[in-house]
Design a protein around this nucleic acid. Structure first.
Lengths: 202, 202
DNA sequence: TCGGTAAACGAACGTTCGTGCTATTCTCCC
DNA sequence: GGGAGAATAGCACGAACGTTCGTTTACCGA
């Protein structure tokens, strides 16, 4: 049972890279098998349907994301530095994880937002987890007095996600070289509004 | 040559609605023909490839977008009211245009960001036009003294787009009932930062 | 009213897809 | 080192896709 586990992971790693470019639906078992030098049926036997393959691809992508973004960022000091670390690693995670086609979750989100099923359910669960994690980091920032007491952590998480979506759109679709600057600027604006203002409340 | 034009438009309208749910790639000529009570080949004859169909679908969607969002909003008084009108209509345009599957452009953006070709080229051109239009509206707001003199109009347009992407993600994928409130809150934050501050420059 | 042209049809094509079955090869434990 | 069971290959299937072709129907100006 060890060999199987190994190739299964190899398959999923490759699938994550592939799907980052063509989406989860664009993923093709034949192409995936060719890329790995496997037969279609040999690969197929690991998962028993394309749907469970897609679900496991999402799971693998999440695992990688946690490894290259979440875990290192949580090592940063709580409060603002931790949020900055999160943002920095998030910005570059497709490079770190060598996903040539951009963020898999962004692609999957647009693809699955109207297609019910277990793949969508898994994606939604992962995204909610991620937003909740961001919100929690923000809350520790409030506790640490880095941010305003009345800051809405979930709104902040939502807005941060929006900044990343904007970055993705600008960088991947429009190929705008200023994408990263734009994203960082937006992030700083978010932080400025989150900090305790020395004047004015709302 | 008149009848053909009529059905062609009918096809494209239907295709826009369909593609809003399944994406431009998920669009299927057979399904589209069935929905309209046409034969596959009869429909196909109007466009001579699926690719040109997709391009024309984008064009038609843009036409609708201008009609239900841009034109009415440009009737609002210049400056902040006009930006508000733009944002309001943009927020609800999928309902106004009865697109059951969310914004077609958002779906297409994620789908095409790594697939070169004329469809992608058309989409990029449309998106740049749209961002430029937003930036221009913002500039008139600067001229009208509603916004700070040193406001970066293109950054504002970029950030506004990000707010919409966040809204789309939250509303369509996560089905969060607070999506619209979140988006409006983010929009107000954007405006607050854009207005002339009575104190502090940066 | 007639004739030409535009519009739509029906059937078939070559591919590609996911998915089963059966046989073969490999792995690992005793 | 041999045998059980896992891992992979080979092959074929049915369905769906875009596309082509020859034919038929509907329209409209002369």
């Amino acid at each position: 049972m060890r060999k199987g586990e190994t190739t299964r992971t190899a398959i999923l790693d490759r699938a994550v890279r592939l799907a980052s470019g063509v989406g989860l639906g664009g993923l093709t078992i034949g192409k995936l098998a060719d890329d790995l030098g496997l037969s279609k049926s040999g690969l197929f036997a690991h998962f028993h349907s394309k749907e469970t393959l897609q679900v496991q691809v999402l799971g693998r992508a999440s695992h990688i994301f946690v490894q290259v973004v979440v875990r290192p960022a949580l090592a940063a000091p709580r409060g603002e530095p931790r949020i900055r670390a999160l943002f920095d690693r998030w910005l570059g995670w497709t490079k770190t994880a060598s996903l040539p086609g951009g963020c898999l979750f962004v692609a999957a989100a647009a693809e699955l937002d109207d297609r019910p099923g277990i793949v969508r359910d898994r994606l939604v669960a992962l995204q909610k987890e991620w937003l909740e994690l961001i919100a929690n980091v923000v809350r520790t920032g409030v506790d640490a007095k880095h941010f305003r007491d009345d800051l809405d952590a979930e709104q902040f998480a939502h807005d941060l996600y929006a900044v990343m979506l904007g970055y993705h759109h600008s960088a991947r679709l429009l190929r705008d070289p200023r994408s990263e600057d734009r994203a960082r600027f937006a992030f700083e604006s978010l932080l400025r509004l989150a900090r305790r203002s020395r004047r004015r409340s709302a």
